[in-house]
Structure formats: structure tokens, C-alpha cells
């Protein structure tokens, strides 16, 4: 499966967070690296949408759509800061 990057989920992130988030800075709870969400590794075709750290590959975020709701798991993020 071909991974994309955080740009590809700009619409989904806007839907969930209510604002533009591809330029937000995310810090990985595992390795501590901080970078724009746009640069994270994104798997669209996993069960749900899986976002991984570009540095250490740890899971940062998971989004699953169940009927018209999103279930959001952000346990892999230490900080998520919108600009």
C-alpha cells in the first residue's frame, strides 16, 4: 500500500478539528520529533485512516468513520499545535 502524506487528509482534519491543520505542528510522543502534519506518513486505505511519524513510524493519529461520526485516537501525539 502506497503511503501518502498529511496533505491528503487536509479535508478530513478540517472536518474533525474545525480549522486548517496540515500546517499544524505535531510532536511524536515516541521519538519527540516535531513537524508539520502535512509531512506525516498517511495510510488512507488502512482500516480507518492511519497517520504515522515520518521519523520513527509510530502511530500518531487514527481516524475511523462510523456512520456519520468520526472516532479519533490521538494517543501518539504529545502536542498538536495549530498555527
Amino acid at each position: 500500500m502506497n503511503p501518502l502524506d498529511g496533505n491528503a487528509i487536509g479535508g478530513l482534519l478540517h472536518e474533525v478539528f474545525g480549522t486548517e491543520m496540515t500546517d499544524a505542528a505535531g510532536t511524536c510522543v515516541t521519538c519527540g520529533q516535531t513537524g508539520p502534519v502535512a509531512q506525516a506518513v498517511v495510510y488512507l486505505d488502512a482500516p480507518g485512516t492511519v497517520v504515522r511519524c515520518r521519523n520513527c513510524s509510530s502511530v500518531l493519529m487514527v481516524f475511523a468513520r462510523v456512520h456519520e461520526r468520526y472516532c479519533v485516537d490521538l494517543r501518539g501525539l504529545a502536542v498538536l499545535e495549530a498555527r
Binding site: P3, L4, N7, A8, I9, D45
Partner: peptide, 12 residues
């Protein structure tokens, strides 16, 4: 270096 990746399915 700003990057944007697309794939044959899904995203772009």
C-alpha cells in the same frame, strides 16, 4: 522543501 505526495488510489 515543501512536499506533497499522491498515490494511484485514494488521496490525489
Amino acid at each position: 522543501v515543501k512536499t506533497e505526495r499522491f498515490g494511484a488510489t485514494g488521496g490525489r
